[in-house]
Amino acid sequence: MGGHDRRTVRDLRRSNRAAVLRRLYFEGPLSRQELAPATGLSSGSISNVATELLAEGVLEQAGSVGSDGGRPRRLLRVAPHCACLVGVDVGETRVRVELFDLMLGEVARSEQPLDADGHDAEFVVRLIEKGLTAVLAHVDAATGPLLGVGVGVPGIVEHPADGGALVHGQTIGWDAVPLEAMLRESAGFPGGRFPNSGRTDGDRVPLYIGNGAKTLGQAEMWFGAGRGARDAVIALIGSGVGACVVTGGEPYAGASSSAGEWGHTVLSVGGRACRCGARGCLEAYVGAGAVLERW
């Protein structure tokens, strides 16, 4: 006997809204007529969802296109200034924090150099706090509320079921650093909430932490050369070397979240010394430091 569908009317409404927003975010602007076959929803459902989202300011009109003999079709798109996002990149030489509108237009940026303290975890957290304070000062009614913060870091990111993200980064000296807990508990986030976030719901702002190469790969699949592809490998070659493996349209992490840690694949047993402590790693041959040293 088949199981019962336990979804409520609220669940169905949220699902329909998500389907419409996803299509418009990645493929818009689109007309209501185009949205129906693209989402699999009925024209009535599309009309209801679009009307709600337009009234809430999440969508906006984006002109019109001609139709075959009928009235012009009005195009819809996600309103860029209905909300904002923060991205944090913990790099080799600096910590960059940027505030974006919902369509990833840059609103504000702060860069903090990594000095003699290097990648000491507490020092990096202080730099992230400083950058967040600077960019969140630009959050106001014109930007909309802060939806979330994403942090890209070097190394393997573990997401245990009973706690926040842990970061394992050999090259920067991090061993199971509880970065999510450190950010939540830091002075920059009183009560686990972000100051000047523009949120009125009292909820904590979502905080997402991931490997930098994998976040780059996801962005490439969404907005770059990988759009429309289901399987791809996106390589990141800089001071460090990494990759994002995408299969079936989703980034592949592997059993231990280490898939794509390409830079520390051993090419030559007993070869050139790598900063991770091993010898013969790919990074020791093609990483920026190795290339500058040899040429």
Rank of each mutant, 00 (worst) to 15 (best):
H159R: 14
L132K: 10
G144D: 11
Q112Y: 07
E27V: 01
L30H: 04
V125N: 04
D120C: 12
G131W: 00
R73G: 00
G105C: 05
G150M: 11
V49Q: 05
R17A: 04
R74E: 10
A79N: 14
E60L: 14
Q33F: 05
G63E: 09
D140G: 15
S45W: 02
G66C: 00
V149Q: 03
G28D: 02
H119E: 13
A55F: 10
A83P: 01
A55K: 15
G105Q: 11
R71D: 08
V124K: 01
L35H: 02
V58S: 12
L127M: 13
P72A: 08
E27N: 10
A38Y: 04
E92L: 05
V58R: 12
A142C: 11
D115C: 10
L132W: 11
E129P: 03
G57I: 04
A134Y: 05
V95D: 02
P29E: 07
G148A: 15
G57F: 07
E122G: 14
P29V: 06
P145W: 08
V65M: 08
C82K: 01
V58N: 03
A83Q: 03
S31W: 05
A141I: 10
C84T: 06
N48R: 15
L75Y: 05
G63C: 10
D89T: 06
L114Y: 09
